[in-house]
Every structure is written in C-alpha cells, then in structure tokens.
Simulated assay, not measured.
Amino acid sequence: MSGDRLTGFTHDGLHFDVRDEGPADGPVVVLLHGFPQTSSSWDGVVPVLHEAGYRTVAPDQRGYSPGARPRGRSSYTLGKLVDDVVALVEQVGAGPVHLVGHDWGAAVAWSVASAHPEVVRTLTTVSVPHPQAFVRALRTPSQLAKSWYMGFFQLPWLPERAMSSPAVSRRMLGRIGMDRAAHERFRREIVQGGALHGGICWYRALPLENPRGLGRRVTVPTTFVWSDADGALGRTGAELTAEYVDAATYRFEVLEGVSHWIPEQEPRRLAEIVLDRVR
C-alpha cells in the first residue's frame, strides 16, 4: 500500500503489481489484461472512467508481475487465475466490484463472475466469449483455424523462441491487427520484461482443464463486446455467449471494423460501453 493506494498484493505466495488510479472514493472497476500484454493496455480507457468518477484497479496478472512468475503449467490453471482476482477484490475491500476483462482477462472475468458472483457487481468482457461458448465454437472449422496458435503454444521452448523474434512476433500479432506501437510495447514489457514464458503458460495449462467446468452460467449484469474484424475470435462463439448469461441483464455490443485489440484501438468507445454497464 502507498497511502490509500494499492500498489500490489500477495496471494498464493506470489506478489502482484497493481495500478490503482482515479478517485480514491469512487466505485471500483477492476481491469484484467490479456495476452501478450500488461495493465498498460488499459491506458487509453482509464482516463474516461476516472472523469466519470470511477476508481480503476488494474493488476499485472500471474506470469506477468515479476514477483508472480511460478514455473510449470499447473501453476496457471483457470482456478488459480480466478483465485488471484478474488484475492485482489478482497484486498481492495470495496465490496463487489465492476469487473472488466479483455482477451485472456475476459476468460478469467467470465469464470470469476460464474464461480464468485458475490464479488462482482457488473461484468464487461471484451473479445473472448463465455468459455463454454468458445469450446463449442472450436468445433467449427473457421474458429479452429483462427485458434491454431493455441496448439503451437503447447510445444516446449519453441513458442518462446518464435515470439522473441521481432520479425516473427510482428507477423503473428500483426495478422490479428496489432499495430507497430503496440508491438514495440510488447517487445519492451513482455519479451524484454521477462513475462513471455508466464503468459504462454496460460495456454499450456488448458489441457489440464475440464471442459465441462469452464464456467457456469453468469447471472450478474453483463455486457459482452466483440469486434467483427477480430482475426482470433469469430462470430460463432460471440453469438453463442447469450446462452450462458441471464438474458434479462445481458447486452451484446459489436464494434464494426475493429481488430482484436479493442482497448488500444477504440479506448473511448470501450470506456463508454463500460460506463453504460456500470451505471
């Protein structure tokens, strides 16, 4: 802690870095980043939330915070990632929070809301559909083709070597819309910052999951944001998501012509969608 600000928290023997910004007495919005990024991916979103009176708490998650990089894929199962977020919410001590997640952060947010609805006031997920909807979408040729990298990431050491190459990572991430500035940030924060192995371990832990246990039905008020130019996640999973959310409080927002990297490419539009939900 630094004054009234949370600079980090400890859970499961690991120390996580946290960005705690905005009005200290405002309602809390917890922001979960995806792969291969850190809490800095929300830099364009948080000023809009702060202007509206909300406090934002954005952790660098397991594998990304320097003090939270355990070895071995079993340390990165979804249950452990969920428990990290629940521990953060308890540390903030502001009651149920507004939970927002992008990419892998969305997968974790879905699972937190379904397993621990008592800590979530509202849910906004970005890009990644409900886990059960995604599993069903993987049975289609189009989503299977988009998700080829998930199989590649199961290999030992080779994914780290490939993603550490500027040319290879620029090509792989550029195919799903990452621009040059974001790629430079990836090189600085993830590759040079030592977070690449931990981030890839989130994928390597997937074979340890029970597909039937990947998130139950979500009952908290929820908005799902998907973009139709997302090169990693297709429409099938996005549309199936409605089957796993309480229909009375669910909204599905489609951003046209936007790539996978919604928080960086359309931060104000995303922030306004989040505000519509939390209000």
Rank of each mutant, 00 (worst) to 15 (best):
residue 93 G to L: 02
residue 172 M to T: 14
residue 101 G to W: 05
residue 265 Q to H: 09
residue 165 S to M: 12
residue 6 L to H: 06
residue 25 D to G: 08
residue 175 R to T: 07
residue 128 V to F: 05
residue 152 F to I: 08
residue 37 Q to G: 05
residue 205 A to E: 03
residue 142 S to D: 14
residue 18 V to G: 14
residue 184 E to W: 13
residue 25 D to C: 01
residue 254 V to Q: 15
residue 154 Q to K: 04
residue 140 T to P: 00
residue 167 A to V: 11
residue 118 E to P: 00
residue 158 L to W: 10
residue 142 S to N: 01
residue 125 T to L: 07
residue 229 A to H: 14
residue 188 R to I: 08
residue 213 G to K: 08
residue 177 G to P: 08
residue 177 G to C: 09
residue 64 Y to L: 07
residue 267 P to H: 13
residue 29 V to I: 13
residue 69 R to I: 00
residue 164 S to H: 09
residue 190 I to K: 14
residue 86 V to Q: 09
residue 179 D to S: 14
residue 268 R to M: 06
residue 16 F to E: 04
residue 161 R to M: 10
residue 260 H to I: 02
residue 86 V to C: 06
residue 149 Y to F: 00
residue 130 H to L: 11
residue 266 E to G: 01
residue 190 I to R: 12
residue 185 R to Y: 09
residue 140 T to K: 00
residue 8 G to W: 09
residue 20 D to T: 04
residue 6 L to C: 04
residue 78 L to A: 03
residue 50 H to L: 06
residue 226 W to H: 06
residue 96 P to N: 01
residue 36 P to D: 04
residue 58 A to E: 11
residue 195 A to Q: 13
residue 174 G to Y: 15
residue 232 A to E: 02
residue 176 I to M: 15
residue 191 V to G: 01
residue 53 G to V: 10
residue 149 Y to M: 00
residue 254 V to E: 15
residue 136 R to S: 06
